[in-house]
Design a protein around this nucleic acid. Structure first.
Lengths: 199, 199
DNA sequence: ATAAAATTCAATCATATGATTGAATCATAC
DNA sequence: GTATGATTCAATCATATGATTGAATTTTAT
């Protein structure tokens, strides 16, 4: 039997992903988790504390995977843009795919975390700030000679592709494909190719 | 005089853009609009009806501008990809910029409308469905020889850039720029160049 | 000017929500 | 086994929310 705390995190993650911060309700969460309202207060505190806990649990691993992959690439003398892009795209995409239904939730949450207007999501930016800096530095090394502004714009464009893919994948796939499964490698490749040319 | 109705639409638009559908409250809206809760019921009906009215008012003009620009381009014997992209990007970007503060709201709304999970936003897709089909057809003409899937992916990527730009522009600009104003032409050009290579 | 229609308003309803409390239950150490 | 602390629970609070009503006010048409 799963611990209440973990169960709550799983369900809360799903609800925040699907309904957003404002749209998710503690009662909806505890109902799905089969527990009591007070258990949230006991384990986490307020609704916002719960959200931060969810964020902490999933954002950190993804970012650290991205950074460690990037680190590996940086060792190489001949840093290739394509490999930097791969280091960025692969962790979240693979995770989103490998986890199946849960990955769908996670990716939705990840995508939403970039677009939600709620103040709580400002915290998200902090989680990603260091990651962004590192990748922009890598871009400068892989593709020297551009202006600071160029790198920022292109990083944003690169990020846009995956944010929208993750946030909208269900609608997109529903529109374009019949099959319910998707190929992460194809998606990654398409994103990388698109960006590589764009850069 | 339809003063109250328009006022409500303006304020509601802002609130939906900033707080999302679930986060926006009728009381918050009527307080800013300086009117009464019942006025919403009178002029629109339910909260969802109000949302649809907001959507109707702003989405239609943008889409119709995009389509009419595209129509013009389609007249040309030698259809250029760049011009198709311009037809897509210019209307929402110009509108977002020219309206200043209000444009910021509109663009936030526009961006959010592509990522919100709420069922109400499913309606948004209908508004854009025809527009998407037309542009994909134009892509096929401007850049023949690709598979159906290719066009869909690239359309999504193109869309991603502007969705994320509009949704995140404030955060982005806050991070990268000191000045509060922005240059729509520069943004449009950067998007087009990035896509043109990607295609 | 006046009646009818359109619009606005204060008051209220029923429910939902985040949060808190104190008692009950469970797990663990001794 | 029992005492202690950790965890769960039902009950409750205060407020917020979407919606509705009927009276008051304003606008419009004649």
């Amino acid at each position: 039997m799963k611990k209440t705390r973990d169960q709550l995190l799983d369900i809360a993650e799903r609800h925040f992903a699907i309904y957003g911060f404002a749209g998710a309700t503690l009662r909806g969460i505890i109902k799905d988790a089969g527990t009591n309202v007070a258990s949230i207060a006991y384990h986490f505190g307020t609704k916002e504390d719960l959200f931060q806990a969810v964020l902490e649990r999933f954002a950190k691993p993804v970012v650290s995977q991205q950074l460690s992959k990037l680190e590996t690439e940086l060792q190489s003398k001949n840093l290739k843009l394509r490999n930097v892009l791969l280091a960025f795209y692969e962790p979240p995409m693979k995770m989103a795919h490998s986890l199946g239904k849960k990955g769908e939730i996670l990716s939705l949450f990840l995508g939403r975390s970039q677009t939600e207007p709620e103040p709580v999501f400002n915290e998200v930016d902090k989680h990603y700030a260091d990651c962004r800096d590192q990748f922009i530095k890598a871009f400068e090394r892989a593709l020297p000679g551009l202006t600071k502004e160029d790198y920022h714009w292109r990083f944003e464009f690169m990020l846009s592709l995956i944010v929208c893919f993750l946030t909208r994948q269900k609608q997109i796939r529903g529109r374009y494909e019949t099959r319910t499964d998707w190929n992460p490698d194809e998606a990654i490749n398409r994103m990388i190719s698109f960006c590589e040319s764009g850069f």
